[in-house]
């Protein structure tokens, strides 16, 4: 893997993308796929940040406290996120559009606040059970967990994304994937076509949570320290921006969106404090001129035609056939 990676990094380093930057681009690409899955089934869910937090904390505890290897912690974090997605999905996925978005933002905030107060809650529960004052410190509230071993390697992430990419191409050619697309277009008709809409939506929500959990485990073992603030509302909106920038017509869109948005502040270091402004500007330009996102051939050809028309100021004798 190094044989490929070293020359790649040699090319990327001059434009500001060092290995740590690349690693975060890849982690965010996984998050992009996480939100893509829900959007592709017509669910406007912003729960990925919350599930990422669950994955990160479970994974970090497993490696740091129980000395699990990374792969086992990865499975643990993914499983934890997936299991928690079941009781969250069943009631909330009955909601549509913006109402689902609000409910899932609420879920993210609940996760954040629970992590913040977990030690205190656990301490008071233990105190009542045992009848004497108990001190409990495990996840350290707002201070966060420190000194997590940096186990994530770049090739782990690349391998994970390659496998994920293969699974996604197969998903779209499977019954399940087609049911997802049908539900996005018209949920009622999908049900009349014999598709169990509740089942498909909940399964997609779980898969999305599992991926966000994986991203959480990977990122915890990159950053060495995790705090609940890193997985709040801001993160949920960032993840949504990946999908908006890249577009959701294919699964490559959110991956590209995530990588571009993560790399941009590093590439544009010379803009100093205006880097954030530029990120917003790029997002705005894409939304206005390429509503389908960066990875969307139809959108580019529409834009191309618009530009062509703008250049030939007079009405050209075009064939009008397209």
């Amino acid at each position: 893997m190094d044989a490929v990676l070293t020359p790649l990094l040699d090319i990327l380093r001059p434009i500001g993308i060092t290995e740590p930057v690349l690693q975060f681009m890849l982690v965010n690409a996984i998050l992009g796929v996480s939100i893509y899955l829900t959007l592709h089934a017509g669910m406007f869910s912003l729960a990925s940040a919350g599930f990422m937090a669950i994955g990160a904390y479970v994974g970090a505890l497993l490696t740091q406290q129980s000395d699990w290897p990374l792969w086992a912690a990865l499975l643990g974090g993914m499983a934890a996120a997936g299991v928690i997605a079941v009781p969250i999905g069943l009631p909330t996925l009955r909601l549509r559009d913006i109402y689902l978005a609000i409910a899932t933002i609420g879920f993210g905030e609940v996760v954040r606040v629970l992590i913040l107060n977990f030690d205190d809650i656990a301490a008071s529960v233990l105190t009542t059970l045992q009848g004497e004052r108990v001190r409990f410190r495990l996840i350290e509230g707002a201070r966060g967990i420190k000194g997590i071993p940096t186990l994530t390697e770049t090739w782990h992430l690349i391998l994970f994304l390659i496998v994920l990419g293969y699974l996604l191409t197969r998903l779209h050619r499977s019954r399940f994937g087609r049911a997802m697309a049908a539900i996005r277009q018209d949920e009622t008709v999908a049900a009349n076509m014999g598709i169990n809409v509740v089942y498909v939506k909940n399964m997609v929500f779980i898969l999305s949570a599992v991926l966000a959990g994986a991203a959480g485990v990977f990122s915890a073992h990159l950053t060495r320290i995790i705090t609940p603030a890193a997985f709040g509302f801001d993160k949920a909106v960032d993840i949504l921006a990946f999908a908006v920038l890249g577009g959701t017509s294919t699964w490559i869109g959110p991956i590209v969106g995530a990588m571009v948005l993560t790399a941009m502040p590093e590439v544009l270091r010379f803009l100093k404090e205006f880097r954030g402004v530029f990120n917003g500007l790029v997002l705005l330009v894409v939304i206005v001129y390429l509503p389908g996102g960066l990875v969307n051939p139809a959108g580019w050809s529409r834009l191309w035609q618009r530009l062509g028309r703008a250049q030939t100021a007079s009405p050209s004798p075009s064939t009008g056939v397209d």
Partner: peptide
């Protein structure tokens, strides 16, 4: 009319056979 407008005519007919199939996601993978 409530067809799946973005999908081709053929895809519309494939989706309608959803309940006829049994292959799981794993089978497809």
């Amino acid at each position: 009319i409530r067809l799946f407008g973005d999908m081709t005519a053929l895809q519309n007919l494939i989706i309608a056979q959803h309940a006829r199939g049994h292959a799981s996601l794993l089978d497809a993978v």
